[in-house]
Amino acid sequence: MNTIRYTMPGFVLSVLVALLARWLESKLPVHFIGASIMALFIGMTINHVFKLGKKFKPGLKFTSKKILKLAIVLLGASLSMGTILHVGRLSLTVMFFTLFTCFGAGYFIGKWLGLDWKLSNMISAGTGICGGSAIAAMAPVIEAKDKDVAYAMSATFLFDMAMVLLFPIMGNMMGLSDMAYGLWAGTAVNDTSSVVAAGYAFSEAAGDFATMVKLTRTLTIIPVVLIFSLINAYMNSKKSIGNESQKKVKITSLFPWFILAFMGMALINSLGFFPAVFAAGSKSISKFLMVTALAAIGLNTDIHEMKKSGISPLIHGFLISALVVVVAITVEYYMGLV
């Protein structure tokens, strides 16, 4: 009971911020900004203005860690491995090159800018996979700080806002077909809401294809998060050299339970065991819980601490995103789609 009493203030505040963000999202004429981003920024603003006391901290930590993991598990129930076959090899080819660009170039850009490897790779994951969802999924397995999660989200969000406006203009200037444009937007724009906005701003057919490509990108969360859980375990083992009690890495630290549960839910759904109503309901609950978790991260983030990181993370996000835009359209050109 004491645990519930201590966590309730922070949890309830996070839910209220999430509800406000969802309400604001519903009032926008065009959904170019998702409730997750709104909740993050609203939470950061509240913490900055009101300086939340210690009584909120246990609940905010519980929501940003435990509730976030539950949201990711439930998300798996709405994903299907068959989406890859539905969209086809074209999107997979382009995605291979964009993911290689994100994590390959991102590594060297992060080194050049002097960024922590966790922040650098969260920005790369957000750019290459699916914006906030990828960052949220990676954060627990690499034990990222809340301020780094907030900064990574901000870096990918700012570029997305520009792309929602510029992509339809550039697509028309290049004379892209609906499929070519949908493939480009689906692989180069980050967050789901931004992909939808940029896609349907071009045409309905382009929006449909961009959305399917985006769903395929989401599936790459699974291998990427597992790989980074191994990398984090390796980095932790290097730090513990000389401490015999910490030399052995537990299997649970290599394969976090919530990612295994996420994979299991996606597999069960792929085999057709989940009714459509259940899958849709799980996705809706997952999306709201993720908004709630990001509200908690915002409420627990000190803007002054973020400022200490300087402008480097934003430069990282801009460079990686710009490279992905160029690489995606270049690959399409050589595939004969442009």
Rank of each mutant, 00 (worst) to 15 (best):
M1S: 14
R5G: 10
Y6P: 00
Y6V: 03
G10E: 12
V12C: 02
V12I: 14
A18P: 13
A18F: 10
L20V: 14
A21E: 02
A21C: 02
A21R: 01
R22W: 09
W23I: 05
E25R: 13
E25K: 14
S26C: 06
L28D: 08
V30G: 00
I33K: 10
G34N: 08
F41Y: 10
H48A: 13
V49M: 04
K65D: 10
K66Q: 01
A71F: 08
G76Y: 10
T83L: 08
T83S: 11
I84T: 02
H86E: 12
G88L: 05
T98S: 04
F103E: 03
F103A: 01
G106I: 09
S124G: 12
A125K: 10
A125P: 03
G131Q: 01
A134M: 01
A136V: 06
A137L: 10
V141N: 09
D146I: 00
D148K: 06
F157L: 13
L158F: 13
F159A: 13
D160W: 02
L166W: 07
N172F: 07
G175Y: 02
G175Q: 03
D178L: 05
D178M: 05
W184C: 03
V189D: 03
N190Q: 12
S194K: 09
Y200K: 07
M212Y: 15
K214I: 13
L215M: 15
L215G: 04
N236Q: 15
I251W: 14
A261Q: 11
M263K: 05
M263A: 15
M265T: 14
A266F: 04
L267D: 09
F273K: 07
S284P: 01
T292W: 03
D302Y: 12
H304C: 04
E305P: 14
K307A: 15
G310N: 07
I311G: 02
I311M: 14
S312P: 00
I315R: 05
S321W: 12
V326G: 08
A328Q: 01
T330F: 14
E332M: 15
E332H: 09
G336D: 03
V338N: 13
